[in-house]
Design a protein around this nucleic acid. Structure first.
Lengths: 193, 193
DNA sequence: GTCTATACACCGATAGAC
DNA sequence: GTCTATCGGTGTATAGAC
């Protein structure tokens, strides 16, 4: 056994700022530009320090995902407690999900096995929360759902990702129509008081 | 003006095989592994030759996308001529679209401007063909559509991308339900004889 | 058309001083 | 904790021989 390299504390201020930098780089330039040097440059330290806080770049990436995933679950759980949970769950996704970051992590998960596992777990956790919220709301209002809660969840999330993606490229045809379908679905299953 | 470097002919056999290699590398390993060396290795030539056929790697990537896009348009146009055009259009997407490749090109389009333009044009072209086919089929059968053709097109494509992605990661919950919703939509708007 | 050889930049990761 | 310095590897791209 080679002795473990001396390492910095998880959760410290600089640890967080490195993950912040990593997120920003992936958003702005894609994972191809995410390197120990680009992270260090962005927060004004030397490259060597990145390897004091993370043993490999892959580990940094996995930690960045894990932190972002925890945040998203917290937002979803908060929305679930709301009176208008369907509306709030949808707002969490449409307003706070960073679709660019999502794509980068999904692409990376193909070549970093540890990340693939994290991503899979996270998707399943999110889906459970959303479906549970939808089912509960439907049961409470005593409405017959037009399509199954799980299918509705998948359609809504997939469409939102696509719309964000396309908008980022300058394509917007049909977007209004899609949002209207979703809004109608919400109005039907979670009517305002 | 620096004189243009001597270049190999577009469309030659080896030109195509280089683009084939590029596609395969992106599918298997992601665009991070797409390099002049990996392309050359895969077809058994030396790295230098890639720069005889393409002036930069970005150009190779754009050409790879352009070739794939032309193929997809051809498949869609063929499907449009069919009697059951909705069914056939859907089959083109679900059976022949390589979603992994799509994601890679979409990610790349954020940092290669020339590619971004190509991708935007292609999305719009595909959407037009699909929507036209759907509208025509609906008019021919004299049916009142449940949701607008363009929204249906976007939902279906987005859902298919998401399902493929998730399946690739081992997530399959809710997939059957989504496919059933789409199948029902098709049955309703494009009934078999 | 295809090759050898090479320039130069940048990557991940480590040794070890302060 | 943060640094300087450095290794070996690999990337893009070019010069120029055959």
């Amino acid at each position: 056994m080679t002795p473990a390299r001396r390492m910095g504390p998880k959760g410290s201020e600089i640890w967080h700022s490195m993950l912040d930098a990593a997120e920003q780089i992936m958003q702005d330039q894609g994972y191809g530009e995410l390197t120990s040097r680009s992270v260090a440059d962005r927060i004004g330290v030397k490259q060597r320090l990145v390897y004091y806080y993370f043993s490999t770049m892959d580990e940094l990436i996995v930690e960045a995902f894990r932190r972002a995933a925890v945040r998203e679950i917290e937002r979803l759980e908060l929305a679930l407690e709301s009176k208008h949970s369907i509306r709030e769950l949808w707002k969490v996704f449409i307003e706070t999900t960073d679709t660019k970051l999502v794509s980068e992590f999904m692409a990376l998960s193909n070549r970093i096995d540890a990340l693939g596992k994290e991503v899979k777990d996270h998707i399943e956790k999110c889906r459970d929360l959303q479906v549970t919220g939808l089912e509960r709301a439907i049961a409470a209002k005593g409405i017959e759902p037009t399509i199954s809660p799980i299918a509705a969840t998948i359609f809504a999330n997939a469409a939102m990702l696509a719309l964000h993606h396309e908008a980022g490229m300058g394509v917007t045809s049909g977007h209004e129509e899609v949002l209207k379908v979703i809004a109608d679905y919400i109005d039907l299953h979670d009517p305002a008081d």
